[in-house]
Design a protein around this nucleic acid. Structure first.
Lengths: 147, 147
DNA sequence: GACTGATCGTCAGTGATGCTGACAATCAGC
DNA sequence: GCTGATTGTCAGCATCACTGACGATCAGTC
């Protein structure tokens, strides 16, 4: 080493991809949580609602797998949503080990409102970059996450 | 709505940016933690080491601010690194409220080895996308994180 | 020089998150 | 009808990073 790390001798953590990904996720989540707060749900809840709104009623495990969370975590998540009257659980007649999870009417309305708010929050977060860069970002992240 | 969400009626969470960012961060962190394991540090520790290696010895608070973590969190982080002989803490003679934090010789060696391993892990994670896309990703994330 | 307010490191306590391990109920294959 | 696997549930635990409080110290003011 001739000179002591020439250009950015500050060791800017913004060079480290892990830092950038983590903090981008944190900031976006905070924005979305704030945007969803009027609907009494948060970003985790929204993820579940989104899956439920676009599917035939499925089991808890299916939803959990889709969201990439544990089935034990799903229990607590649905407990809250059920208490709020957003989803219902009933035993699946075809396989009584399973619970069929469904959005209530109120749940579906909540989802639609939340979807709009979510979109606005995401757009706000992405406001500083061009639409092309947004597409590129989404594609790149998809590739990385899906190996 | 004419038909019920035409193309991807599965509500793929991979469309949601928050999901992508979070899981990209998780996967990368897991890879890096595994790569750093032989050096008895993890990705959080590495962040601190990186800052310390590229700076004049500074206070705990400075390092914490740079890393975007709380000063109370920094205490525990440094406790571990000090116990491992990677950093030293001593009161700043110029301001005895502060601790001067420094890498030990062993700490610096650890950092250099860890830096190489970290780079390999990051490259492995980024293997599926082109170098151009990597640059673009880094720039985009930087813009987003820095508002 | 002594008082006031702010700063730094420390620690205890807290809340959120998401796991493991165990359990009962149920199903599928033989 | 057994046996083993699956589903939902629950208790317990580990991690993480925070808040609030405290003592020690510093800087500015009188």
């Amino acid at each position: 080493m001739i000179v002591s790390t020439p250009p950015s001798a500050t060791a800017d953590p913004h060079d480290v991809l892990g830092y950038l990904l983590k903090h981008a996720a944190l900031q976006l989540t905070a924005l979305i949580d704030a945007a969803l707060e009027p609907f009494d749900i948060d970003s985790k809840d929204f993820g579940a609602l989104r899956v439920l709104a676009h599917r035939e009623p499925t089991s808890q495990l299916e939803v959990a797998k889709t969201l990439g969370i544990d089935r034990t975590t799903m229990v607590a998540l649905l407990d809250v949503l059920e208490r709020k009257g957003i989803v219902t659980r009933r035993p699946d007649p075809a396989d009584r080990r399973r619970n069929v999870v469904e959005l209530t009417a109120h749940g579906f309305k909540t989802y639609e409102d939340a979807e709009a708010a979510h979109g606005r929050a995401e757009s706000e977060f992405l406001g500083a970059i061009s639409p092309g860069a947004v597409d590129q970002l989404r594609r790149t992240l998809r590739t990385l996450v899906e190996h």
